[in-house]
Amino acid sequence: MCAVHPDTTGVFDRLDFADDAPHEQVVFCQDLRTGLKAIIAIHSTALGPALGGTRFYPYVDERAALTDVLRLSRGMTYKAAIAGLKLGGGKAVIIGEPARLKTPALLEAYGRFVETLNGRYITAGDVNTTSEDMDIVGRTTAHVVARTPRNGGSGDSAPLTALGVFHAMAAAAETYWGTADLTGRKIGVEGVGKVGYNLVGLLVDAGAIVSATDTNTAALGRLAAAHPSVSIVDSVIDADIDLYAPCAMGATLTDVSAAGLIASVVCGAANNQLAHPDVELALHQRGILWVPDFVANSGGLIQVAGELDKRSREETTAQVEKVGDTVGRILQRQREHQILVGEAARDIVIERLRSARTPGPLSPVLPPRSDSF
C-alpha cells in the first residue's frame, strides 16, 4: 500500500478550486519518442467547445504545471462567457524548455492528442508557441486556430489582445479619473513579450508616459529600439505610477505587493494576476481599481472565435474594441450592488452559464452567487 503525502493534491481534491465549478476533463499526454509531456484541461463546454491556447513552459515540476493549466482553463471559461462567445474554457500546457524540446515532431505528437478529443477542445498559441507552431500542430488535428494567414488562420492574436487591454484601461480610467484619455498617465507595463510589446505601442500613441520591465533582455532591446521614449526599469509594480499593467506570468499581486502598490488602477494582459482571491479585497480596501484579467485580455479569444465564425478582421476588431464597454457595464454593476469588481464580473459569467443549459454529466454544477462585501 502506497503512503500519500499529506500535501499532495490531485485533480479532484484541490483546495484551491473548492469554491468553483469542477473541471469536466483533464488529459495527461506523453510521447516518449519526442519527449512530449502535456496536460490538456477542459473546464467547461456549457457554452460550446472549450477553446484555449497551448503554453510551452519549463515548470519546476508537474504539480506546478497542473495548477497552471487548471487555473488557466477556468479563466478561459470566464473569458468566453463574459465576452458573449459560444465557446467553453480549456487550456493546455507542454512541460519543458521550448528552446530545447520544441520540434515539429513534438508539435505533431501534441496535435494527435488534441485530435483524440474530437473537437471538445480547440487549441491555439500562447506563451512560447506561435502561429507557425499552430501550423505544425494543424498537420495532425483539425481542431486548431490562430494559424498563419497563409494556412487559413487569423495569425498572431497578440495585437488584438493588446487592443482589448487598451480599451479596458480607457474604461477603467474613465471610471476612476473621470476621463478615458490616457495622455500624461504614468503606466508601468510588466512584461513586453508578444502582448506587452503591442500594448506599449498603443499607450505611447495615446500619449501615456510608459515605463517597462521584463526578464528577457532581448524583448527589452526590441522595445527600446521601437519606442525610445519608454523608460526601461527594473520593476514597475512598486514604482510611482498611475496604472500597473501586468502582462507577464500570473500571481504578481500578492498580499505584500498589493500592500505596497502605489498605482490607482490595475489592468493588464496577464492571466490569474491575483495570487489568491483575498488580494482583490485588499486592493479594494486601499481604493485600487482592479480590472479582472479574464475581461481585459479577452481580445485574443474574440479573434479566434471570429476565425471560427468566418468573420472579417474588421468585424472582429470592432468586437474587441467593445471590451471597454464590457468593463464599463461591470463597473456599473459593482457600484449598484456594492460588491467587488471581480464579483460583479463573475456573477455575469455565472448567470450566462446557468442560462446556457441544464447541467448534465459534462456540464459542471455552478457555485452560488457571490456575497457582497
Rank of each mutant, 00 (worst) to 15 (best):
V4H: 01
V11F: 02
R14K: 12
R14N: 14
D20R: 14
H23E: 12
E24A: 13
C29P: 09
T34A: 08
I40E: 13
L51T: 14
G53D: 07
Y59S: 12
Y59G: 14
E62I: 10
V69Q: 11
L70I: 12
G75S: 07
A80R: 00
A81S: 08
I82Y: 01
G84C: 06
K86R: 14
G89K: 13
G89N: 10
G90E: 11
K91F: 13
V93D: 11
V93Y: 06
R100F: 01
P104A: 01
P104G: 05
A105V: 02
L107S: 07
L107K: 09
G111K: 11
F113S: 14
E115T: 04
E115Q: 15
T116I: 08
G125P: 14
M134C: 07
V137M: 06
V137N: 00
T141K: 07
A142T: 09
T148G: 01
G152E: 10
L160P: 03
V165W: 04
F166C: 05
T175E: 10
T175N: 02
Y176S: 00
W177A: 07
D181Y: 09
I187V: 15
G188I: 08
V189Y: 04
V189H: 03
V189W: 05
G191R: 04
K194C: 03
K194N: 15
Y197W: 06
V204N: 14
A206V: 14
G207I: 15
S211A: 15
T213Y: 02
A219C: 09
A219H: 08
G221S: 01
S229Y: 13
S229R: 14
V230T: 09
V233Y: 03
D234K: 13
S235E: 15
A239D: 15
A245P: 03
A248Y: 09
A248I: 14
G250Q: 02
L253F: 02
D255M: 07
V256M: 12
G260K: 14
V266L: 03
C267E: 05
A270V: 11
R286V: 11
G287K: 13
L289I: 09
D293T: 03
N297F: 00
A305L: 03
E314A: 13
E321D: 03
V323S: 00
V327I: 00
R329V: 05
I330V: 10
L331G: 04
Q332T: 15
R333V: 00
I339G: 00
G342Y: 00
G342K: 00
E343C: 00
A344G: 08
A345G: 05
I348T: 12
V349A: 04
R354M: 07
P359E: 08
L362S: 13
P364A: 06
P364F: 06
V365Q: 09
V365E: 12
P367Q: 06
F373M: 08
